[in-house]
């Protein structure tokens, strides 16, 4: 890093036009955030009053709007946030545990039908997740599982890409010699996995965890289909619901709009924090999938 930084310093000055271009791109990627940050400080009249839409109104009232957001409809918004957290954590951790074990198993053991099974998993990467939602819904309806948290969590445990990523990483980052040495020292297979292999695979584990948690947090189609009780909604489906209500009745919806804007802002903060704080871990893991 340091050597490229010193070399980069020389180039950086030569490439001012590129940096300016980059500046414009950054502005483009940040505009929606800026708009949301600015407009979540406004009340309904400020929002619709025709003032500058990219700057604050005279009255900046985050606290009032926040209070309104978290008390509206009996504090349903907080419930949605907690639901999203539950789905993301349960789905993310569950999917990661399964993917890490399976990826390691595929990489490090020669067992019957291994090649065939792995080929099937790779083929599953190409099956669009949404094609599974409708039949899964009907299956769950038969079992009485629709409109429960399980309807969202259980299908989220499936992450073939995580298995692929872990397989590639385990194959390259966990040498067979170390595993054999551990076995020769009398460690069982489980202990070898937990104490020797797992620490070596950590960057990929964090990456898979983050990717699966994000996928669960962002999921919209699955919970939209599965859930009818709005007290079980994740925040994505909840905000979508509010948006539908607000668009349907233009007059009564005006106060709801400011809640939706602030609600969008609040809902993205947890993931942004997760990404930034775990940055060092996932960057190493992401390159794996792309290099092979």
């Amino acid at each position: 890093m340091s050597e490229s930084a010193s070399a980069g310093h020389r180039r950086a000055q030569r490439h001012l036009p590129l940096q300016i271009l980059l500046g414009f791109l950054v502005i483009y990627f940040l505009v929606p955030f800026w708009w949301v940050v600015v407009n979540s400080s406004k009340d309904a009249p400020g929002l619709f009053g025709g003032g500058n839409t990219l700057w604050f109104a005279d009255q900046v009232d985050y606290l009032g709007n926040l209070r309104q957001l978290f008390t509206y409809d009996g504090g349903i918004y907080l419930r949605w946030l907690l639901n999203s957290t539950l789905y993301a954590l349960a789905g993310g951790i569950g999917a990661t545990v399964l993917a890490v074990m399976a990826g390691y198993g595929f990489a490090k053991y020669r067992f019957a039908a291994r090649r065939f099974s792995f080929a099937v998993v790779l083929g599953a990467l190409m099956v669009p997740a949404t094609a599974l939602v409708i039949p899964t819904f009907i299956m769950f309806a038969r079992l009485g599982l629709t409109n429960t948290v399980w309807a969202v969590i259980l299908p989220s445990l499936l992450n073939p890409f995580g298995v692929y990523l872990m397989h590639v990483y385990a194959r390259d980052a966990v040498p067979d010699e170390i595993l054999d040495a551990a076995r020769a020292d009398g460690a069982g297979e489980v202990r070898t996995f937990l104490q020797i292999a797992l620490p070596l695979m950590r960057p990929a584990v964090v990456t898979v965890l983050l990717l699966s948690a994000v996928a669960s947090w962002n999921n919209y189609f699955l919970p939209l289909a599965m859930l009818s009780d709005n007290r079980l909604f994740p925040v994505t489906v909840g905000l979508g619901l509010w948006q539908g209500v607000a668009s349907a009745n233009n007059a009564g919806g005006t106060s709801l709009w400011s809640l939706i804007i602030l609600g969008s802002l609040v809902s993205v903060i947890p993931l942004i924090i997760a990404f930034f704080s775990l940055q060092r871990h996932w960057r190493g893991g992401l390159s794996v999938g792309g290099l092979r």
Binding site: A5, V26, V214, N218, L271
Partner: peptide, 24 residues
């Protein structure tokens, strides 16, 4: 190709939308 404090900042900002649910 270009390494500077600003490019490191830009990299994060450009990546930021990925953390946003598509619905949001």
């Amino acid at each position: 190709a270009v390494t500077s404090l600003f490019t490191r900042f830009s990299r994060l900002m450009i990546f930021l939308p990925y953390a946003i649910p598509t619905v949001i």
